[in-house]
């Protein structure tokens, strides 16, 4: 469960402070499928970064599975990211010189798994996204849709309960986009919490709940709202 209480984020832009998030109250239950929407500059990315533990809030409380992660150091948050959160990016963010196998293996390397465990796990995930036969290929040899599936495999390899996706279909044609969304749909049905940022209403349609941001505030934050 994700619980945000009065989360604020202030950036210092020159001499003037800029408040990107102005007190976010948001609760996302385990197993929800949430789309975060809003115009650019509304604070979507900042919010996702904070939820993903890539960034820390200036003030407020963030409970991730009952644990307050607001005060943790960067390296402590690294472990949280490694075990609890899988990231899927708009531009895939695969390592260009590494093979599909190595890309998927990457989070396992920071989780201290043995070579044998890593191999089994990577194989399992690549099979799941249907790309084992491409495991020796590099990202440049794959289509966009395939690259994103590799990225999803990477996001899932440590079995995190939460999947964060930032415009996952933004760089894909509509067919590939639909494939990706069907994978997300399947993952949600299998019990994952899926949170994604999108502009696209069709994509947002897969989500069971839409959180709308405007000027650093949630328009419909509480679940009851």
């Amino acid at each position: 469960m994700i619980q945000l209480n009065d989360i604020r984020k202030v950036y210092q832009m020159g001499k003037l402070p800029f408040e990107a998030l102005k007190g976010i109250d948001l609760t996302i239950e385990s197993g929800e499928f949430v789309a975060v929407m809003g115009p650019s500059g509304s604070g979507k990315s900042t919010l996702m970064n904070i939820i993903g533990c890539l960034d820390t809030a200036s003030s407020g409380e963030y409970h991730l599975d009952e644990r307050n992660v607001a005060g943790l150091s960067f390296d402590q948050l690294s472990q949280v990211r490694n075990r609890k959160i899988g990231f899927v990016f708009q531009n895939f963010n695969l390592l260009p010189y590494a093979t599909s196998f190595e890309n998927v293996e990457l989070p396992l390397l920071f989780n201290g798994k043995s070579a044998k465990q890593r191999k089994e796990r990577v194989r399992e995930l690549l099979d799941k996204v249907g790309l084992w036969e491409w495991h020796r290929h590099r990202p440049t040899e794959l289509s966009g849709g395939q690259q994103q599936r590799i990225a999803i495999a990477r996001a899932l390899v440590n079995e995190p309960p939460i999947l964060l996706a930032d415009e996952p279909t933004g760089n894909l044609d509509s067919n590939s986009g639909r494939e990706i969304m069907e994978i997300f749909q399947g993952l949600w049905e299998a019990g994952k919490t899926v949170i994604m940022v999108t502009h696209d209403n069709t994509v947002a349609g897969y989500a069971k709940r839409i959180v709308r941001l405007l000027d650093g505030r949630v328009e419909n934050g509480r679940k009851s709202a």
Partner: peptide, 13 residues
């Protein structure tokens, strides 16, 4: 970017 990816998937500084 490589460093960013590694940090995102759980590398410590």
């Amino acid at each position: 970017r490589e460093i960013g990816v590694k940090l995102a998937v759980g590398a410590k500084r």
